[in-house]
Design a protein around this nucleic acid. Structure first.
Length: 814
RNA sequence: GCUCGGGUGGCGAAAUGGCAGACGCAGGGGACUUAAAAUCCCCAGGGGGCAACCCCAUGCGGGUUCGAUUCCCGCCCCGAGCACCA
């Protein structure tokens, strides 16, 4: 290989081969002294290959892993493929291939691309979620939840996409349409499998605020909190007039109970029949039918007209003792709270709109302090802060936030209230009526019910069938295959049927990080002792599009396995950092916009190291950046300069020269700045700082061996092949990633002369050069001696002088 | 509608109370070359001035401060997420 010309293709091929041959990136999982689990979200291997957005995320995570490794950690950086699911299946249908043929091909292409970018991956631990050796244990995870009563079946109204012919989660429905194919979504009732994640709501929420367990990007933590949606309030009882039926409502504003002028039940509420009087029966039945026909999404986010009908029934307000009418309306959701509300139109916007539409009474019970004669309401008054109670009997005059507690206590004494914490989170539906996923390991027997497949009979292999296209029946294509469908019941031996739903891909990805360190084990999914060394994941880097679902499900599954004594840690990810998005032409990269950039051509043209450095340089990693290929020549020129500098530094005829003080200072400053910037994921400024150092070295014509050595180390996380080659040319035999990260001398990060700005009335008028330890008087004398400063101070009286040591001197004059 | 980000040169960006625009791209001028590429040097927010210098400038408007891109209040625009959660 030429020593004078930098040839990325040669350098990269050489080091990629050597890393594999020497197992450079395969830590000893059982004996690592300082284990550091560096995880990135594994990709879905699409037919299009990795795009620049993927590469940006993976490179950013890899830079951090390499940095930690040079700081002396034993870094485990695995990679794999999340290859089950509707994406793969729909694409296979579209191109007329079988996913079992398509996916290996895609994985091969992804593997090639991931190798070419030079990630520090422990390839010996790679897997695909579609490997039977993996999904065997995904099924096992299902059984652990089943055993603990956390997996159950229920009939539920679900979103049905007639295009994809499958159930969609609420978050896959965008404005009433399928997020994937755009078909209008319908409502269907199906029996499905759910995980009881709501049992864990309080713990999942509490841990978010426990710094001993979690240190996550603030935006991600916040998204999870909002998703779990804890609220505090009370359940209040309204006795139906003239009967023993009691309607229980949930409210977060028990202070407003005196203003509750009617009740609203969800149309599906079980008490509707009992409360409806004969004259209203027909209207109620019609309204319920209409609500049932609406798909869930239209009902959730459709027009905001507050429709509803009266039942004719009345209930007694427990605070006022007055009868109030009971209505039904589809703005009240059966899934949340008790499926019934007390409507307080004076202090809730939705109730106000409803009362206005249906001419129901509005009573004000909270008013701002200072409103002597509370004005009639023209809109709901929802402020709580400084408000006080009115029209509320013995509570009048009390601050509203105090009244919340006081009224709950009072009604509790009357047996009509109970304080209650409510969560917005709902149970996780894991059923998919599709083909391309792990079959749910359950056998349905007419005598024994839902029987788990014995663990020693796992995996329940997904059979290769050619007619995997879903139909309109709402049943998985697997049901059409009798030889697979009918089995003997594991308990009684009689003829039984397999569960034909497959599980959600989010289940595959809810535990994959537990499998990575244990892929060599074939008799168990993972090993407690080995996981105790590596878990929790030290740092997880991924996109904020998974802030809620994936990250919450992974936390939930880990928590369940922890409770079962199978995993030592309750929280899987010690640190999580969300990366930004790569924008092109002002928009997120996507196929539909036609602005997707294929990284291959850039790697071929510029080299992976240049491309990596460019991606990390174009903007702050946690915010993303704007991709434009014009900028890539900068990082390449930078590497070329370093290459030349290494050539000089490696020359034995090039004697180490005395290092000038300012170079010494810049060297130490750069190490400090780069170290701190990489630590904070400010990769763009870390690279900028290195460039500054290179600029100064070139200006001084200095290629001192020690400085160049440190520079190569600092480049290494960004341009790993390049750095290995430079390292070798500097005379080293082992990997640069086994060298230690450079350190700096704090005393040498400050120059012995400083430039200090001089301001007069807040405007900079001059700069003066001072010794590092100059006093205020020194600065003042130097400043007064400056002609410009003197002019601005002439004929003025100095009222005040502010001295910021080493930075600036400010005169305040008349 | 609510929540969270963000708005700085021609462009990507930096600076989180102290010289706004580091670093890089694109641009202009020069050197080298028969020429070009590559490389190197210089210039480069806007305006005024021969110049020393001066004024304006970080989405808009106010405020705090000796000093504000940074902190506070109000508004506008862009992006992302959530969506009748009682």
């Amino acid at each position: 290989m030429s020593t004078s010309e930098y040839s990325p293709s040669e350098v990269e091929a050489k080091w990629q081969a050597r890393w594999i041959a020497e197992r450079t990136n395969e830590p000893d999982l059982d004996r690592a002294a300082r284990p550091y689990y560096n995880l990135m979200m594994f990709p879905y291997p699409s037919a299009e290959g990795l795009h620049v957005g993927n590469l940006f995320a993976f490179t950013g995570a890899d830079v951090f892993g390499r940095f930690r490794r040079m700081q002396g950690w034993n870094v485990f950086e695995p990679i794999g493929f999340d290859a089950f699911g509707i994406h793969s299946e729909n694409f296979a249908l579209k191109v007329g291939m079988h996913p079992a043929d398509l996916i290996p091909r895609n994985i091969e292409n992804f593997t090639r691309q991931l190798r070419s970018m030079g990630g520090m991956y422990a390839w010996e631990h790679a897997f695909s979620t579609t490997d039977p050796e993996y999904y065997r244990w995904t099924q096992w995870v299902f059984l652990q939840l089943f055993k603990r009563g956390l997996a159950y079946q229920k009939n539920g109204a679900v979103n049905w996409c007639p295009g994809c012919k499958t159930v969609l989660s609420n978050e896959q429905v965008i404005a009433g349409e399928c997020e994937r194919c755009g078909s209008p979504v319908e409502q269907r009732v199906l029996e499905q499998w759910y995980f009881r994640i709501t049992d864990y709501a309080a713990r999942l929420l509490a841990n978010l605020d426990d710094p001993a367990k979690m240190d996550w990007s603030a935006s991600t933590t916040l998204a999870q909190k909002n998703w779990i949606g804890r609220s505090e309030g009370a359940e209040l009882s309204f006795a139906a007039a003239g009967g023993d039926t009691v309607v229980t409502v949930y409210t977060t504003r028990p202070d407003t109970v005196f203003g509750a002028t009617f009740l609203v039940l969800a149309p599906e509420h079980p008490l509707v029949d009992a409360l409806t009087t004969d004259p209203h029966r027909a209207a109620v039945a019609a309204y319920r039918a209409q609500a049932a026909a609406k798909d869930l999404t239209a009902r959730r986010i459709g027009d905001r007209e507050k429709s509803g009908v009266a039942t004719g029934g009345m209930a007694i307000n427990p605070a006022t003792g007055e009868p109030v009418p009971v209505w039904i309306a589809d703005y009240v959701l059966m899934e949340y709270g008790t499926g019934a509300i007390m409507a307080v139109p004076g202090h809730d916007e939705r109730d106000f709109a409803f009362a206005t539409t249906h001419a129901l009474p509005i009573v004000r019970v909270v008013a701002p302090v200072g409103d002597a004669e509370p004005a009639p309401l023209t809109e709901a008054f929802t402020d709580l802060g400084t408000a006080r109670m009115v029209n509320s009997a013995q509570f009048d005059g009390m601050p509203a936030d105090e009244a919340k507690q006081a009224i709950t206590n009072w009604l509790e004494g009357e047996g009509a209230a109970e304080a209650k914490v409510q969560f917005r989170l709902y149970d996780w539906c894991i059923s998919r009526q599709r083909y391309w996923g792990p079959p749910i390991p359950i056998i349905h027997c007419d005598d024994c019910g839902a029987v788990p497949v014995p663990e020693d009979q796992l995996p329940v292999l997904l059979p290769r069938i050619e007619d995997f296209r879903p139909d309109d029946s709402g049943v998985s294509p697997l049901a059409r295959h009798a030889e697979w469908y009918f089995v003997d019941c594991p308990e009684c031996g009689r003829k039984a049927r397999r569960e034909t739903d497959v599980s959600d891909t989010f289940l595959d990805s809810a535990w994959y990080f537990l499998r990575y360190p244990c892929t060599d084990m074939h008799d168990r999914p993972f090993d407690r002792a080995r996981l105790d060394r590596w878990m929790p994941v030290a740092r997880y880097i991924g996109g904020n599009e998974h802030a809620v679902l994936h990250l919450l499900y992974a936390r939930f599954i880990t928590m369940v396995l922890h409770d079962a004594g199978l995993v030592g840690t309750e929280e899987p990810f010690r640190e999580f950092r969300a990366h930004g998005l790569i924008i092109k032409d002002g928009a997120k990269m996507s196929k539909s916009r036609g602005n997707v950039v294929n990284p291959d051509e850039y790697i071929t043209k510029w080299g992976a190291d240049t491309f990596r450095t460019y991606l990390m340089f174009l903007g702050p990693f946690q915010e993303g950046g704007d991709f434009r290929d014009a900028g890539i020549s900068g990082p390449r020129r930078y590497l070329d300069k370093v290459w030349d500098m290494v050539t000089t530094a490696a020359d034995p005829d090039c004697r180490d020269a005395e290092i000038r003080r300012d170079v010494m200072v810049k060297w130490n400053q750069t190490i400090k700045k780069v170290t701190e910037a990489v630590e904070g994921l400010h990769y763009n400024t870390a690279i900028a700082a290195q460039m500054e150092l290179v600029g100064l070295l070139r200006e001084q014509q200095c290629a001192e061996h020690g400085i160049v050595t440190d520079l190569v180390k600092m480049i290494a996380p960004f341009a790993p092949h390049f750095a290995e080659e430079c390292w070798e040319r500097l005379g080293h035999r082992s990997s640069v990633f086994d060298a230690s990260w450079p350190t700096w001398d704090e005393a040498l990060t400050v120059d012995d002369v400083l430039t200090v700005a001089v301001q007069v009335n807040g405007r900079t008028r001059a700069t003066v050069t001072l010794a590092r330890d100059a006093s205020e008087d020194d600065a003042r004398n130097a400043a007064m001696a400056d002609a410009s400063v003197a002019r601005h101070l002439a004929d003025r009286e100095i009222r005040k002088v502010i001295w910021v040591p080493g930075r600036m001197l400010s005169f305040v004059v008349t």
